[in-house]
Design a protein around this nucleic acid. Structure first.
Lengths: 240, 240
DNA sequence: CCAGTTTGGTGCAGAAGCGAACAGACCTTC
DNA sequence: GAAGGTCTGTTCGCTTCTGCACCAAACTGG
């Protein structure tokens, strides 16, 4: 997540586009302010708009009847919602919910598809990013099978601060159980453990990261794997 | 998994291609006999060949260091290994291992890519199938988070018989724990339960399905969801 | 036919998470 | 300032799965 060299940092994917294609795309985009809880796309339903988060955070979750949804992926300023359009499919396999209020850009799906046809760099970027999303999905899956709550919580916190501005997370602990697909008490135990080790500081509706390095240590390898997967496919400036 | 209307049933995806593109592809393909345990592709490594199983069964698994791999997807005669080429990426995010010995067709990746450039129906099919694979991946993930062993085992058995010829599965129970990502004893308990309910018959190195309907009842909704996901994107004869 | 290996069944202690419930802390509202 | 709602921390018993171990049955090769 090193800062791109170009002046204006909006969204990593947009920033990486060649200047001309970037401008063409931005002309069609509208700035949006997202509120926490907004549902941008139901699972399997067609996507009205393609979204490029800037400070907002989108959570990709899968639902199974009778159970709370469970987060399988995360989209922040390093990504976008709508990468499946690289496959010519205008729906998303996962439910997309805003989990961190903030800003972003959006463009109607039909307009975006038109852009896609005339912008090979954009098409390529979607393909690469979609691949990364799939890797993230698989990683999350094995992670929740094998790793304990503290490690998973640490990983989630790191992924979130990477995508959010600042080191403060405006997250209620009450939201975490649903995200991580476990019970509230289980999250609590894990959070207490991280707090006792001096890595985070939990107060009402807010979690502050004290030691990033400590968290990286507490997290499972899945965090590093996710970062590497992104870097390998979408190295900075590679799409220029 | 209704039988296609065309005479020769090789592989569902190939069969669904328009006649001319189908022939062009088949000319380049080589019949292969796969042995159980063959590793067709390591996770993240480039794919030498694209594979179209006929009676063989390929398991897509994700590994995390220090733990046995866990199955996240399954490819039989309804699918193919190498769908990521629809994204112009020649590697597979998951490890691909032959889990059921049998036959299939293969073609070198470079030749396949050439075909892809001249066959829009093939390109489209890869895109749709890749989307279905991603849905399957997400479904498997929530399933192993939420559902108990008996339901997951039933689902796995159904998915396997759907892709295998006959109702006999040549599977050692010893292979199941690794596939399902749990311990041997846990599988045993689940298998005993299904057997007591008269749904399957386990003998040495072989599991026979007695009551398909009963298994569908015992399985979680994830099985039906997977079947529907496939049907929705790849309805019979839709690609003709 | 027998010894050795593979495969399948089982038992037990312990860890982890579930479901439900309760108590205290904090905020908002009146 | 009191009342009520929301958020957080914690508890209890229970279920499920793990890690380890042991044993029985069945196959294999000499």
């Amino acid at each position: 997540m090193a800062p791109p060299s170009r002046a204006l940092v909006l969204n990593r994917l947009i920033d990486e586009l060649p200047r001309e294609e970037c401008h063409r795309l931005l002309e069609q985009c509208t700035p949006v302010t997202y509120r926490g809880g907004d549902v941008l796309c139901e699972s399997g339903q067609p996507l009205e708009h393609v979204h490029f988060p800037m400070t907002a955070l989108i959570s990709l979750a899968k639902t199974v009847p009778g159970k709370p949804p469970i987060e399988m992926g995360m989209i922040g300023r390093e990504g976008m919602l709508g990468a499946t359009l690289a496959l010519g499919i205008d729906s998303n396999p996962l439910q997309a919910v805003v989990h961190g209020a903030g800003t972003g850009l959006r463009i109607s799906t039909t307009r975006f598809q038109a852009q896609l046809r005339t912008s090979p760099a954009l098409q390529r970027m979607l393909e690469l990013y979609l691949y990364v999303l799939v890797e993230q999905l698989a990683q999350t899956a094995v992670c929740s099978s094998f790793h304990g709550m503290p490690a998973r919580l640490a990983k989630w916190l790191l992924m979130t601060v990477d995508r959010a501005p600042g080191e403060q997370l405006e997250v209620a602990q009450a939201a975490l159980p649903e995200i991580l697909g476990v019970r509230r008490a289980a999250v609590n135990v894990a959070a207490s453990e991280l707090q006792q080790r001096g890595l985070i500081d939990c107060t009402r509706r807010r979690i502050r990261v004290i030691s990033r390095a400590g968290l990286e240590n507490a997290a499972c390898e899945c965090y590093a794997a996710g970062v590497n997967a992104y870097r390998r496919r979408l190295p900075p400036r590679a799409c220029a």
